[in-house]
Design a protein around this nucleic acid. Structure first.
Lengths: 188, 188, 188, 188
DNA sequence: AATGAATGAGACTTCATTCAT
DNA sequence: TATGAATGAAGTCTCATTCAT
């Protein structure tokens, strides 16, 4: 009966947080985020009870989007390498086009404000890719290492690759392929 | 005589900074660092004009130590793989035994307080390893990629490996070898 | 029709205010009171235009109830001491059983939000007792002091007595009698 | 070797707190107190770690001063009534001349910020008077009641008396005597 | 040079009150 | 009229940096 809590506002705040945190890091003031969102200082706290809350939800939002984008349109029929390549390109293309989100994610990955619980949930968003990795490494040298270790390795290779693509966009395509080469070698 | 007198104090502050920042992140208060160093609040600022200053010098210090440790005792006569393995083990062993420094480095790597200039200088500390990498990848698939890209890839693989070694010290040796396997595959 | 519709809601808010303010003091949030009353945030302000409003009305409500309870069943035929004793016991018994209201009253008695006007009206609720006091002190040592001063003295003795009864309920009866002894001595 | 922490500043803050809290209650802003003290906002917190800290120390300060003033110049040779009268007059005169301190004390007496520990220590400041009360009531009607109850009764009579003296200073002397009359009756 | 008190800009969060629904 | 989201002023406390001693 009252003005309903608006998803639009919530999203506006999250979007603003991305822009501001990408620019200033997670120590950005909530007031700055609110202002960027065109929302009052206090309003931010009706949507997110705490700054840490906002950070955690932001983390999950981005992580989930990333996980979804990566698997988008993946055909399970093609051979593994093709599937991995598909995933790889989706992944890096997303990261290139949402470089702010990626920056934010990088910041939050080392932030003490993100709870272990949140990290666990965030990890769920990546299980689809892990499954693919599991199959891909089946006959590779690392077939007996812990899967999450292998996943982390591939992830770090992707991250590094993205860094170079962003830093040197002119050769983004080439970097992307080099990165894939490296990742695939690790798996096989 | 322009430098403040006691190198000891300077070192004490840096060492304290490592402990405190490892525990609380780079947002740790300068007062906390000074206290941990057994030095007064204000004294910190005669050795480091600014908090950012302290952070930058700390970054360089650690980076340089890491670079030096890694190359320590490297014999240039053995074959490349052996040399790389030697480096790899030195590197990860150092990271394991100085986990606080590593934590700090991880924090500073994403800190906005570290200037590009500092990063460039820090990079110098790694050129020795880069030379080895250059030779190692000579006949590998990535022989035409930018060297610093390849170096970054190997670096990120090392970082990830260290994470797992610290998280699961019981299997540190195994993780170390898995990581090396991955890195070597990328190079060859 | 100028009044908002539901007296029930109004009462619910006042009752909730007693519970919340007894627990948290007069700085309790209006939102907390509304919630405790099962009423919306904003609704509170259609019944009480202002937080200070609510506090003032609450003060009067409790004061009036107290005044009424005290005189309840007072027979004007018995001798003065018996009447006073009757009043005294009613008074303290009420305070014991409504300790939240008493706490609130104690808080509001020193609150800057209660206006002089409200205090004056609240005082009216006590005139019945004052009349009895006036007769009781007729032949006492304080017969020439201002009545309201004497009333205030007796009132403060009652308050102090109640404090002890609440703090040490096991001996509430004894404390009650000691308090009466003191009050009666002041009057005679 | 640095600028020493100044007792003067500490006192200035406490004095300012008295003025501001007397006027606005204990919810007065620390910033207002600092400003009134001619001290920076943050400086207040080097002298009192917390607002509650300040309040507690303020409470003790006033309570101790009151306790000292009351006993000042008390000759133990005169008869009990004279001693009590001496005390009574000292007490009320102090309260009259330091009405702000008294207001503050009244506020803090009901504040949740004052810890039980502080209250206990504050109570110590009054033991001198309690001893006198103990002797005074020796042969009175309340000789068997708990001493602290009797003390509280006398205290509340004093408080009420002071209220009237402040409210009606023209007759302060008369009120003072009436109050004493009442208190003495309670004891005898 | 060393100390640590002083400063004051901000940070996060709360809350009385207003207003769209 | 009831609701609860929106507002923004305030409040307490922290902290990098300066400065008196």
């Amino acid at each position: 009966m009252a003005r309903p809590r608006s998803d639009e506002r919530r999203s506006a705040i999250l979007a603003a947080a991305i822009r501001v945190i990408a620019a200033e890091g997670p120590s950005a003031a909530t007031a700055a985020i609110a202002k960027e969102a065109g929302v009052s200082n206090g309003s931010l706290f009706t949507y997110f009870g705490t700054k840490a809350d906002l950070l955690n939800q932001l983390y999950l939002d981005i992580k989930k989007e990333m996980g979804a984008v990566i698997l988008e349109g993946l055909s399970t029929e093609s051979d593994l390498r093709s599937q991995m390549l598909h995933v790889w390109r989706h992944w890096l293309r997303w990261a290139m086009s949402c470089s702010e989100k990626r920056r934010v994610l990088a910041h939050l990955n080392v932030s003490d404000d993100i709870t272990p619980e949140t990290r666990k949930v965030g990890h769920q968003a990546m299980v689809g890719i892990e499954a693919l990795l599991e199959r891909s490494r089946q006959s590779g040298a690392l077939r007996n290492a812990p899967l999450i270790f292998v996943a982390a390795l591939v992830n770090s290779i992707a991250d590094t690759t993205i860094d170079f693509m962003i830093r040197d966009p002119a050769n983004a395509g080439a970097h992307c392929d080099v990165g894939f080469e490296a990742a695939w070698k690790v798996l096989s």
